[in-house]
Every structure is written in structure tokens, then in C-alpha cells.
Design a protein around this nucleic acid. Structure first.
Lengths: 338, 338
DNA sequence: ATGAAAGCGCTAACAC
DNA sequence: GTGTTAGCGCTTTCAT
């Protein structure tokens, strides 16, 4: 049996409360008493029991991060940043992998959590709109990625539509005329895909380019294989594109692979731009042009928002906030040439 | 205040124990009573308080996974697999990012954990050997990756040395004579690097190839940038290699980048093989030959070992086990040509 | 500045 | 089958 406050108290010849005071850094403890208690703590190797502490205080010091999958570089990097940001507040992060399954995500939102967490940072994939409304559960939640519906949850995201337009415009400005898009998705929860598609179309129109439906390739998910397959379909079409905007870097990397495999030059024959700025794109051949969201800022803001809700101040009950994070276009070889 | 067992009991007109029985799926409850209780549970939206449950049972249902960094595809994928494996046992996974800092890792091992966890899966980077011995803390730990010292912890790994030899032999067998290695590390805890280096040297000797020290490039860490820089140094050397064995795929991808950037053909001029089989290598150009450890199996075994230690059976106190997981060589374009 | 006692929500023993 | 009771280890009034 591990030692408890009681054991330390006995060893130090003080009351349990005094030990608790020392452990929690309470100020009004005689230096001499403190020393004696500390000595007993060290001698016994006492460690506070977090379950008991939480039972009393209601706080676990754990927040959950729910992402579709850690395997995707974007989410892996996001997770890493959030773990670091949380660390600065002495929180640890529990990872929930939803695999993009609607039911898994619904459970999360419903608060059907099996574990005591102080807050949730959630990057939904299968759920959107009103389905994200929380029933009953008081645990604060911060949503990542796009949302359309103004509900009772804080939210951090970049301007997807504007970013997609930036990417497309970059292609148009380098003289490309048949600009394809890879990553369209039809289902209602695919908000991200729809916003990027909207940005793509807006930029096309602004550039005075026709919107050829044959140049929009749908994908099942946002992985390399999907991008490779979509690119193949585009190439097999009547008139192949001379540029492609892919809705994320993984799709772009897959598309590039198909192009090179078939003997096309990138960007000579076809320029390619992605979205996310994952590390792979900085070392691929050709290096990948992309949209770089300010990931570090996203992570920080998400954790900050949670902290505010968890705090005592008035912010805890404020209306849901919607925070916009900046992004920038990073032009590399896949659109510029080397 | 969220409803507790007591509230449900009152609502259903039964005792608190009966409610507990229903919640925990105890068998001997009259169907009719069960229904009534369940109804009360639903009506009140009762959720068990995990802190209290843990305080009693001593189990939190949370295990921790400590890795150097989630940003590395290998660890991201490992983490994803472990989260899934844990899920099958209804555990959730807490992520600890050590950043490879020795002190962080030392705290972990010392059990200086701030949070109640049932077990720890740990992939050490800065610590090795006796430093990994646990003091006092009873929480079961499973070590991932290589170890040299036979201590009181379970351990899952592939045969690093043999795998490195396989990779090197593959290069030699395709007729390469000046085979370089990228990834050597000098510090004592760099067990992985040392084992892979040993495998490389053994294979060289077996193939009757001289071991030229100028062909062994050291790196600070195992990232793309390190691989790119190391390759550049090799190329700037007196007699550049005609093949490179990189100690992980990230290094290899960086090396390939440098080669292509400088106009070398891969594998025409220089063949490259990596280690880990991360997804990037399957879509890069050229696709990357590599050593593929059975990651899924590693994750499963790690979780299984923890489960056994946590179980009631005799296995809980058995001697530390050392489990070897298989690996295979995956030859792709970077060594074969396309 | 320190101590005594209550109780957080739950499970485990033991009645009935 | 179901109810009663006693803590798990801690924080928190309230005293002193």
C-alpha cells in the first residue's frame, strides 16, 4: 500500500491538514514544520493520489484531444503541438481516435466519456452543424476546423475558403488554364471539403477561368492513395489539367506520385499545390507548394480557450467565441519549378 | 451537480447498491428492477464518476504512452496503433511527449507521474540501460525499442541488428561496393543507432566489403533535415558512396532529396534504403526501399503485456519478458529502379 | 499556524 | 435479490 497523507502526518508528527498544506504549497506553514514534513514526504516517497484529489476538487488535470487519426501527419503534428501547449499549463492530454466514425464522434459530444476529463479539444470529421451541440455535459469543448453552425462551443480555425482561393489563384497567376481540384466530398458533414471547393470555384471565377466539372475529382478520404487514384482519373479524362489544387498535402503527394510515374513533369506539365504544410512536402521531389496554417497558434488558442472556460473569471460563461488563425501560401518547386 | 448513484436510487425506489449492480452489469438483478433502474438512469442522465470508482477500485482505465515526439511518422503511427489496441480493452491512452529529454524520461521512470495511470508503454530515447530501472513505482511498464540491459521491465522490439544487416546485404547483393550509413550516433543512450550500425558493419564484413569510416555519417537526430545534411557531407567527401543505408525512413527521404537536388539519379547513381516503412516512402519518388517492422504486432503485444501484468493471474508477477517482433525487407524503386 | 471532522461518489463485505 | 455500512485519500470548512 502506498503511503498516504496520514502516514506522512504520523511520521512528521503533525496533522494531516498540515501535510496537505505543504503538498499544495500553502503559504502559512512554519518553515521548520514545512521542513520536517518535506523530510517525511521524501522518506516515505509519498505521492498524492490523483483520484482522491480529483474526487474532491473536481479537476483531473487531463484534457482530451479527439482527432480522426494520428497517422495523418497533419493531425500528428497538431496533437504534438497541443500536448506541448497543454504541458505549459500542467495538463496532460488523452488521445481519442475517432477514425472519422460518426458514432464515435457522437459519443464524444454526448459526453459519453468513460474518463474524467476537464475539457475536450475536438476535430470533427463525420459530424457537423447541430449534431455538435452538447447535451447536458458541462465539460468545455473547443472545436477545431470549420463549422457552419453557431452553437455553444468555442471554435478555432483558419479561413478555409480564403485559403483555398489563395491556392487556386496562385495556380492561375502562373498562367495555368485548366486547374483541377482533388478532394471534393459530397456528404453533408464534409464541411472542410466544401469550403475548399467553394474557394477554388471563387478563385476560378475571379480569374475568368471556366469551371469544368470534369476537373473536380472526388475522394473517399484525404490520404495519399486517394490523391494518386484521383489524379489517374483526371489524367485518363478527355482533357487533362495543367494544374491541380489538392485539398490537403497527402492528396497532393499522391497526385505527384501518379504524375511522375506516368512520365509527366511537375510542374512542367502539371503544377500541384496542396494544403496543410506537412513536413513531407518540404523534402519531397519536387518540394510541394502548399497553404500553411499557423498550427502552433491553433494549438495554443485551443488550449487557451479551454483554460478560460475552466477558470473562475467571467470568461468561463461567456458566449462561444470564434477565433480565426492566419495562414500563408508557401510556393515551392511543385508550382514554381526548381 | 450531476446526479449520483444515490439520486438514481431515490428515483427508482431502490437502494444504492442495486443501482451499482445494474451499472456494473451484475447478473443477479430481477429483470423488472433492472428495467426500473435503467429508466431512472436514463431519465437523470446518470454517468458514473470515474474518479470515485478509481479511488475504490484502484484502476483508472488509462494507460500512458511515452514517445519522443508525435511529429515523427513512425511514432505517430505507433501511437495510433496503440490507441486502437488499447481501445479493444476499453482503455484510453494518455500521451506523454518526452522530446527525447533525459530529465523528462527520468521522471517518467521514477513514477513522478502527475496522473493516475494503470500502466506505461515507453519508447525511450535519452535513457538506456540501468537508468530505466524503476524505483518504487509499482505501475507496470513495457519498454519499446532496443535495450541492452536485463532489468525488471517487459520489452517488445524487433531485432535491430539483424534488420540493419538485411538492409545492408540487400544493397551489397545488388552490386553496390561503397555502401554508406547515415544515422550513427555517439552518445551512450543511442542504442538503436549503435545496433543498426553494428548490423551494417556485420553485413559489410560478411559481403567482403571494406568498412570505410568516411562512409559513416553521424546525425544529431533522425529527421529529414539531418538526412539531407548528412548526404551532402557524404557527397562532398573524397569518394562518394554508390549506396546508402539510412537508419530510418526520414533520414532516407532527406538523403534522397539531396541526391536528386544535386542531379544524382536514385537508384542509378546511388541506391537508398531506409528503416521503418512509414507511409511517405510508399508514395515518394522514387518509392523508398525499407525495413518494415510489424508495427501492429508491436502495439498489440505491448498492450497485451500490460494487460497481463494488470491481471490477477500468475503472469502479473512473472519475470520480465522480452518479446521479439518480426520485420521484413521491402524493396522498392530506391534500390531496384523503376 | 495547525488540528478535527465531514464527505466527494463509488465499490466491497456482509447482512437480510 | 436487495439493503446497510464502511471506507478509498484527499480537500475543506470550522475550530482552536
Amino acid at each position: 500500500m502506498p503511503p498516504g497523507l496520514k502516514d506522512v502526518a504520523a511520521q512528521a508528527g503533525v496533522s494531516i491538514k498540515t501535510v496537505s498544506n505543504v503538498v499544495n504549497g500553502y503559504v502559512h506553514v512554519a518553515p521548520e514544520t514545512r521542513a520536517r514534513v518535506q523530510q517525511a514526504i521524501d522518506a516515505l516517497g509519498y505521492k498524492p493520489n490523483m483520484a482522491a484529489r480529483q474526487l474532491r476538487s473536481g479537476r483531473s488535470g487531463v484534457i482530451a484531444l479527439a482527432v480522426p487519426e494520428l497517422q495523418s501527419p497533419y493531425f500528428a503534428e497538431l496533437a504534438g503541438r497541443i500536448v506541448h501547449a497543454a504541458e505549459r499549463r500542467s495538463w496532460t492530454v488523452l488521445i481519442d481516435q475517432t477514425d472519422g466514425h460518426a458514432e464515435r464522434e457522437r459519443n464524444l459530444v454526448a459526453g459519453l466519456r468513460r474518463h474524467a476529463i476537464d475539457g475536450l479539444i475536438f476535430s470533427p470529421l463525420a459530424l457537423a452543424g447541430e449534431e455538435l451541440a452538447r447535451g447536458g455535459d458541462e465539460t468545455p469543448m473547443v472545436l477545431l476546423g470549420e463549422r457552419v453552425w453557431h452553437g455553444p462551443a468555442d471554435h478555432v480555425a483558419i479561413d478555409n475558403t480564403a485559403a483555398a482561393a489563395d491556392a487556386t489563384r496562385h495556380l492561375a497567376e502562373s498562367g495555368r488554364r485548366r486547374i483541377a481540384a482533388i478532394g471534393a466530398q459530397d456528404f453533408p458533414s464534409a464541411v472542410t471539403a466544401q469550403q475548399r471547393l467553394a474557394g477554388y470555384r471563387a478563385a476560378l471565377e475571379q480569374a475568368g477561368l471556366p469551371a469544368d466539372p470534369a476537373l473536380v475529382a472526388e475522394v473517399e478520404s484525404f490520404h495519399r492513395a486517394d490523391g494518386a487514384a484521383a489524379m489517374a482519373r483526371l489524367l485518363d479524362g478527355p482533357r487533362p489539367p495543367d494544374a491541380v489544387f489538392c485539398f490537403n498535402d497527402l492528396l497532393a503527394l499522391g497526385a505527384v506520385r501518379t504524375l511522375l510515374e506516368r512520365g509527366y513533369s511537375v510542374p512542367g506539365d502539371v503544377a500541384v499545390i496542396g494544403f496543410d504544410d506537412i513536413e513531407d512536402g518540404r523534402f519531397s521531389t519536387p518540394t510541394l507548394s502548399t497553404i500553411a496554417p499557423d498550427l502552433g497558434r491553433i494549438a495554443e488558442l485551443a488550449v487557451d480557450l479551454l483554460a478560460e472556460r475552466l477558470g473562475e473569471g467571467e470568461a468561463a460563461t461567456a458566449a462561444p467565441r470564434e477565433l480565426r488563425v492566419s495562414h500563408r501560401l508557401v510556393a515551392r518547386e511543385s508550382t514554381l519549378g526548381s
